[in-house]
Structures are given as C-alpha cells and as structure tokens.
C-alpha cells in the first residue's frame, strides 16, 4: 500500500514543506513593486526636446501618436542675419488604449524627447482619458529612471552602434541632449525634479 501511494505522498510532502516557507506574495497596493528601469509602463514626453519631426507618429505600428504643429519665424538676432524657422508643437498625444508598448517611437526619436517610465497606475473609468495629451505625458517625466550605465568595457564606437536609427543630417537645435548611445549626459528634466 505504501508503494502504491508513494507518488501521492511525495506530492503531499512537498505541499507540507511549502506550507512552512514564507509566502512570496507582493502586497501591491501597500508596497509598490520594484520595477527594472527598462520596464515599459508609460511613455513620457520631454516637450522641449520635441521638434515635431513626426518620425514617431510615422513609425508607430498602430499609429497611435497624434502631433500637430505650426511653423514660427524668429527674427534675425544679428544685423543682416537670416530669419530662422522652427516648429512649435501644438499637440502631442498618445492613445494608450491603442498603444502596443513596443517602444519604436522612443527608439526612432532623434532628439530624445520620449522616454519609458515604469509607471503603470493609470487605468481610467473613461476611455477618453487614455488619450493622453502632452501635459499629461510631461507629468510622467519625473518618474523616468536615470539612464542605465553602458557596459563599461564597450568602446565608444561600438556603443554608438547600439543605436539603430539614423543620425540626423544636421542638428538644428544646438544644446539639445546628445543621443543615448553616446552616453554620460544626464537626461534633462530628471535632475531638477525632486
């Protein structure tokens, strides 16, 4: 009889042993989970960096980014200089009810205006609230984790290769942040936030 039920007994013994161990339940609403910095929770927008180049809106696999912008002309700062045109962002919205959280928009952004934030607590009772405008997207910026250090031994040239997308032909916005692959510059917007 003991041999006959040995399989069951083994299972029961495991259950009994597990009963004495601690539960691995995470007490979520009381204890916030520790999420890795790459976790894809929500997309944050750093509005100052956006040139409304539309790359993200075009590359999005389900086209859930809406951008409106208009051109403004700045008068020449020096005598006889040329007037410069630049885009002003009117609307930047991401429809999180459509978003598939692939991160392509963040990858293709040539000016580092979009970031992943691990934040996930934004369920709503109205579907229209999931279409988040630039003001809401900007509010996620403080939750963006600091850029992770690159693998230290990696030579700089190879590090740049990690970034897939193309370099912009010319950088119309001097003083903007450099590309992520190049490294040490901290993200603007993260350091002045509490």
């Amino acid at each position: 009889m003991t041999k006959f039920l040995s399989g069951l007994a083994k299972g029961m013994a495991t259950t009994a042993r597990t009963m004495t161990t601690h539960a691995h339940t995470q007490q979520y609403p009381h204890v916030k989970p520790e999420l890795p910095s790459r976790s894809r929770g929500v997309i944050a927008l750093l509005e100052e960096n956006c040139t409304s180049c539309m790359l993200c809106a075009r590359e999005c696999p389900d086209w859930c980014i809406y951008i409106d912008s208009h051109k403004e002309t700045t008068p020449p700062t020096t005598e006889g200089g040329r007037a410069r045109q630049h885009n002003v962002l009117d609307r930047f919205a991401i429809d999180f009810s459509l978003c598939m959280y692939c991160g392509i928009c963040i990858e293709v952004c040539p000016f580092d205006a979009l970031f992943w934030s691990p934040e996930f607590e934004y369920s709503t009772t109205d579907i229209r609230d999931l279409l988040q405008e630039k003001e809401t997207l900007g509010q996620w910026m403080p939750t963006v984790p600091a850029p992770e250090p690159l693998v230290p031994e990696l030579p700089q040239t190879e590090a740049q290769q990690l970034v897939v997308d193309v370099e912009p032909e010319d950088d119309p916005a001097a003083g903007r942040t450099t590309k992520r692959g190049a490294g040490e510059v901290p993200r603007p917007g993260t350091e002045e936030q509490p």
């Binding site: 996930f120 607590e121 369920s123 709503t124 579907i127 999931l130």
Partner: peptide, 22 residues
C-alpha cells in the same frame, strides 16, 4: 458597458490590481 479600462499590452498584473482598486 465598461467600468474600468486598464491600459497595457498586456498590462502587468499590478495594473489589474490597480484597476480593481479604481
């Protein structure tokens, strides 16, 4: 009629818990 929309693809389990709290 839907009461709570939980965003994500797929949302993490904690997001469902938050949706339940809402």
């Amino acid at each position: 009629p839907v009461d709570v929309y939980v965003p994500g693809c797929p949302p993490r389990p904690e997001a469902l818990l938050q949706g339940i709290l809402v």
